[in-house]
Design a protein around this nucleic acid. Sequence first.
DNA 1: GTAAGTAGTTACCTGAAGGTAACTATATTG
DNA 2: CAATATAGTTACCTTCAGGTAACTACTTAC
Lengths: 110, 110
Amino acid sequence: MNQKGEVCQQRLMVTRDTLEVIQGKWRVPIILALTFGNKRFGEIQREIVDISPKMLSQELKALEENKIITRTLYDSMPVTVEYSLTPLGKSMKKLLNEILNWGTHFRKEI
Amino acid sequence: MNQKGEVCQQRLMVTRDTLEVIQGKWRVPIILALTFGNKRFGEIQREIVDISPKMLSQELKALEENKIITRTLYDSMPVTVEYSLTPLGKSMKKLLNEILNWGTHFRKEI
DNA sequence: GTAAGTAGTTACCTGAAGGTAACTATATTG
DNA sequence: CAATATAGTTACCTTCAGGTAACTACTTAC
């Protein structure tokens, strides 16, 4: 395999890394919700109206495992849990902006 | 629902539009392959080594329906088919770059 | 003591995404 | 006339993402 081929394989792997993180119906919406400030479980659920608690819980766990968000438990009464973006999560801002930008452009063209 | 809520719903819809286009295992790789110039069916298949003809055919059709690529048939012997990016497809360049950028960043952090 | 708000979990089900292998059709080459 | 190259198609199968509905556990308010 020539040099160009290797570069292509590199690119394929890197794009797959990104896509694995943002893949699925709910991850980008969740990350987007947290770019406007830390939020509690119920707040996210109210903002993303048609997500079920099961999916929200599941996707929050996945994002936490990927070091995109942090879960903080507050020992208040009743117990509250706050989710926030890590620096890695915040580093997705430009990517999210491009997703929004292109989506807007796409709407206009179609 | 307040103004902020409406803006959020707007954002959700727009991100979904983008994600629907790039969703799946193969679309970004295919688009990426075509950013380096027009290519024939077999050329793409050789570049994206583990894609099957079924998946390539299916995803090319989907991308054509979304006006991201164009299919051109050349009546040479044997018949050849060339795929190329439309202006809309070319407009994804910044988005693709951010996918690559963030993927690279993610690799370093993890 | 029952309703409502906190943050989830569990079991079950369905449809779509993706994989495999074989096949089609046309033309050129040896 | 068999092999190879063009560009796909078809039938079948498996896995998993995502949906639904009900349930848990704790606390406060009425």
